[in-house]
Nucleic acid binder design. Structure first.
Lengths: 189, 189
DNA sequence: AAAAAACTATCTACTGATAGGTTTTGAGTG
DNA sequence: CACTCAAAACCTATCAGTAGATAGTTTTTT
C-alpha cells in the first residue's frame, strides 16, 4: 500500500490549509510533519497547485458520500440539517480550523481555476442539500417557521461558514454554537 | 500634507488585503501601485506587521465613527440593522472583496497578536451594535419576530460575513443579497 | 530487474528588510 | 523676501531567508 505517504501528505496539507491557509504552509512544513524530504513530495504532487486540486477533490467526495448516505436512508428535515451543521461543527477544533472551502475561497487568487470550480460545486451541493432539508422540514414539521426553503438554504450556508470564522476569530468554538443557537431552536426532532 | 503617500499606501494595502489576502500581496506590489520604490514603504511602515496593525486600527476607527453617528442621532432598530448590512454590502465589490476583519481572521497566524486583539474588538463592537439594533427593533416594532436580541446578534454577524464569503466564492454579489433576503424581509421601516 | 519512492544537491524567483546616499520640503531667521 | 538647514521622503543597492521546483542518484518494493 504505497498510498500511506500520499494520504499522510493530504491529511497534513488539509489540516494546514484549514488552520493557517493554503499560502500559510510550505512543502518544507509538510515534509517536516510527514517525515520525508520536501523534494520527495513532488513525486506525489508535482506542484502545489496540483496538491490543492486533489485536496479539494477529496474534500468534495467526502461530503458527497455523506449526502448520498442520507439520500438512501431518508430522514427528517431536522435530522438532515443537523447532519450538515454537525459536520461543520466537527471542523471547528479549538476554534482554529475552518472548512477547506472557506480557506480556499479566501486564498482564491493564488490557486488554480480548477479549485474555484470545485469550490463552487461544493457550495452548490451543500446548498441543494440544505434546500432539500428545509423542504423536508417544512413538510414533516421538524423545522419550525419555514416559508421559503430556497431562501433559508441561501442564508444557512453563509451562516454556518461565518460561524466557523467567528469561532476562529475569537479562538473559541462556543461562538459557533452561539451563532447557530437560533436556528437549532427551530428544530423539533 | 505629507500624509498623501501614507494614505495611498493604506488604501492600496486595504484593497489588496481584502481581495487577495494579507499574504497575497508584497511590498513590491504596493510600491508598483502607489508609484514609489518598495524600500520607501519602510519609511512609512517599518515592517509589514506594523502595516497590518495600522490598517486594522484605521478600519476599526472608521466603523466606530459610523456607529457613533447613530448613537447621537437615534433611529429605529431596522434602520440601524440596515446600516450595518449596507456597510458590509459596499465592501462586496464585484464579489471580490471581503471585510478586512474576515481577511485578517483567516491569515491570523502570520499576523502580530495585536491585530487579533483589534479584530476581536471590532467583532465585539459590531455585535454590540447589532444587539442594540435588535433590541430597538423589538421595542419599536421595526424588526419582526425578535425574541432574543443577543442570540440574533450572535447569528447576524456570522451571517453577514459568511454572505461576503459566498459572494466571493462565486464572484457574484447577488449571493450576498440572497443570503440576507430572509433577514431583510423582517424589517418594516 | 523494473518500477516506485525517497533521497541529495541545487536552482531561480521573490520575500521583507537594511544600509547608506540623494532629493524635497518647510519652518525659522536675518 | 531670500537663505539656511534639519527633518522628512524617497532613492539605489544589496542582503539573508525561504518559496516551489528540477536534475540526477540511491534505496525500497514488487
Amino acid at each position: 500500500m504505497g498510498n500511506d505517504t500520499r494520504n499522510a501528505l493530504l491529511d497534513s496539507a488539509e489540516r494546514a490549509a484549514r488552520t493557517v491557509g493554503f499560502d500559510g504552509f510550505s512543502y518544507a512544513d509538510l515534509a517536516n510533519e510527514v517525515g520525508i524530504r520536501k523534494a520527495s513530495i513532488h513525486h506525489h504532487f508535482p506542484s502545489k497547485a496540483n496538491l490543492s486540486i486533489e485536496l479539494m477533490q477529496r474534500y468534495l467526495e467526502k461530503f458527497e458520500m455523506a449526502r448520498a448516505e442520507f439520500r438512501t436512508n431518508p430522514s427528517s428535515g431536522a435530522t438532515q440539517l443537523s447532519a450538515v451543521i454537525n459536520s461543520y461543527r466537527e471542523g471547528v477544533s479549538e476554534g482554529k480550523s475552518v472548512c477547506l472551502c472557506v480557506s480556499f475561497t479566501t486564498s482564491r487568487e493564488s490557486l488554480p481555476e480548477e479549485v474555484s470550480v470545485l469550490v463552487r460545486r461544493f457550495r452548490t451541493m451543500v446548498t441543494e442539500w440544505l434546500t432539500a432539508a428545509f423542504h423536508a422540514g417544512q413538510s414533516d414539521g421538524s423545522i419550525a417557521n419555514v416559508t421559503n426553503p430556497t431562501m433559508e438554504a441561501a442564508a444557512t450556508l453563509p451562516l454556518i461558514e461565518g460561524a466557523q470564522l467567528a469561532a476562529r476569530a475569537e479562538e473559541d468554538p462556543s461562538l459557533f454554537d452561539n451563532a447557530l443557537e437560533l436556528l437549532k431552536q427551530r428544530l423539533t426532532h
